[in-house]
Simulated scan of single mutants.
Amino acid sequence: MTHPVVLVATMVAEPGQEELVERTLATAAPKVHAEPGCLRYALHRKTGTTGEFVMIEKWASQEALGAHMKGAAMREVGAALAQALAGPPDLVFLDAITAGDPVTGAV
């Protein structure tokens, strides 16, 4: 049985590049939403900051995530943000723990 994959990706913009990073990530979202296996791809900004962005992702499988990481949308994002981020994205993979209500207790 294939289990969904949850990923939290944090990206920090170089000073002065905040608008470019936000615009690039927001523009990519509809393309990523259309990718096979995309269950969630939601852009956030860390409260109180202008340049820390957090993408919360959920993929139907590791294979779907792998295809996404190699796909056209991510190639475009990588090219556009090559000089705009303070460093590589911080990727945190999460394993769900079943607790409480299966809908509200899971991402």
Score class of each variant (00 low, 15 high):
M1G: 11
T2A: 10
H3C: 13
P4L: 09
P4G: 03
P4C: 03
P4R: 12
V6Q: 06
V6S: 05
V8E: 10
V8Q: 12
V8A: 10
A9F: 03
A9V: 06
V12P: 00
V12S: 01
E14C: 03
P15C: 06
Q17D: 06
Q17M: 03
L20C: 08
V21A: 02
V21R: 00
E22G: 01
E22I: 01
R23F: 01
R23P: 01
T27V: 14
P30Q: 08
K31W: 09
K31I: 06
K31S: 10
K31T: 12
P36W: 00
C38T: 14
L39M: 01
R40M: 04
Y41T: 05
Y41N: 05
A42Y: 14
H44Y: 14
H44V: 12
H44S: 11
H44F: 14
H44C: 09
R45H: 09
R45I: 04
R45C: 04
T47I: 09
T50V: 12
V54T: 06
M55D: 04
A60D: 09
S61E: 02
S61I: 03
E63T: 03
A67M: 00
G71F: 04
A72D: 11
A73C: 14
M74I: 09
R75K: 14
E76C: 08
E76L: 06
A80W: 05
L81F: 11
A82Y: 06
Q83T: 15
A86P: 05
P88M: 15
D90R: 10
D90Q: 09
D90A: 15
D90V: 03
D90I: 04
F93G: 11
D95A: 11
A96W: 08
I97F: 12
T98V: 13
A99N: 12
G100H: 01
D101I: 04
D101T: 06
T104I: 15
T104Q: 13
A106F: 02
